[in-house]
Design a protein around this nucleic acid. Structure first.
Lengths: 202, 202
DNA sequence: GCGTTACGAGACTGGCCCGTATCGTATTGC
DNA sequence: GCAATACGATACGGGCCAGTCTCGTAACGC
């Protein structure tokens, strides 16, 4: 969606070709500014152009406006999916939980909180957000299903609820800074163990 | 903090007194605009004044700027603390989990997501946010401690982690719209039962 | 009635930004 | 060389907003 004339489509038009370095510089400048704390709407085309060392026209030649540019820029943040090994259910879950909100691009963790209001406001951004996280949910779903079919997990559990149980604590801590008492480092392991075992006396 | 000349302090100065209805109208207008989807920084003093039917000067006479006004307005959203009955551990936890992100003021749930970026940016807003949620955490902490001392819960559990386990799923669903598959209505009960029992086979 | 302060309304300067247009220059195919 | 398109820079009109200020009016103590 919304690719505009994003450079590098085929039919070889006459004249000077678009600069690939400009594309790159614009996207990078956008992500940098967001990571430095600018809100989405405080972000201005003028600031992006200046940071990228680029004329405003060069941006408008490629994208219709801020939203289209943002959509393309944020797509860059899709990190690599973690790869559960499949040996140990517990290890796989810890891996997946630990990967929540972690991304190849270190700017992502600063940017994510800024997107929360947009996701609640704009259907486009909501779709983008779901597109990014739903493969990760799918991965966890498969690990849990495997756990059930191997007899490790109770077959009557609600998988969606269980995923929320595993994901929620990590997400509120990383995105909402929910409880300063919690240690993000050890949290994945603690969460997985608590969910697996429950807290009732035996 | 930041009370400004918030009307209604004592020594009876000469001249016309500040209008209490203006105070009220300004705060209400601010919350209304936020609830209607305006972002914190898109919110302008001019818009608030116009919505409140008030001159801009009337606002500047009371608050130093948008931040001070916002701090006061958001304080209004502190809801009433839920009151666990103390009969049933399970019922008390369901009550507390269900109250997450629910507030006496229905505008609160629309406003909360907008605050996420601010909380990450401004130490003042972060403090305000922690001031609002920490009594609720404390309430849940006490319920869990009681569960331990009554022998219902294992004494070796980490209470902070357990609270995150109970709170996280509800919060990511209400604030981040994390998983469209989940039903917010039944979630508190499902979360509490799953956390209590664990998911391992017995 | 008088001094004092508040009120709603709106004028005003100054800043930031949008989106477009226009510079002179650079890079391509023909 | 020439047409075509891109480039960075900058100018431009228009819009929204911040904060201050000034109207004419209203509400208080004395």
């Amino acid at each position: 969606m919304s690719d505009m004339t994003s450079t590098a489509d085929a039919p070889r038009s006459p004249g000077r070709p678009r600069s690939l370095r400009a594309d790159e510089a614009i996207i990078e400048a956008t992500l940098d500014l967001l990571a430095e704390g600018s809100t989405i709407e405080a972000l201005s085309i003028e600031a992006i152009a200046s940071r990228a060392g680029v004329g405003k026209a060069t941006i408008y030649r490629r994208w219709a406006g801020k939203d289209a540019l943002l959509l393309d820029a944020l797509r860059r943040l899709k990190g690599i999916l973690p790869q559960p090994e499949g040996h140990s259910l517990r290890d796989d879950l810890i891996l997946l939980v630990g990967a929540i909100g972690k991304n190849v691009d270190p700017r992502a963790s600063k940017i994510m909180p800024c997107l929360v209001p947009e996701v609640n406001r704009s259907p486009d951004h909501f779709r983008l957000y779901q597109n990014i996280i739903s493969p990760r949910r799918q991965l966890m779903r498969e690990v849990l299903r495997r756990g059930i079919s191997e007899g490790l997990l109770r077959p009557d559990i609600d998988i969606e609820v269980t995923m929320a149980l595993l994901t929620g604590p990590m997400l509120i801590q990383r995105v909402l800074q929910w409880n300063p008492e919690l240690d993000e480092q050890t949290l994945p392991e603690q969460v997985v163990d608590a969910v697996l075992a429950g807290i009732l006396t035996r």
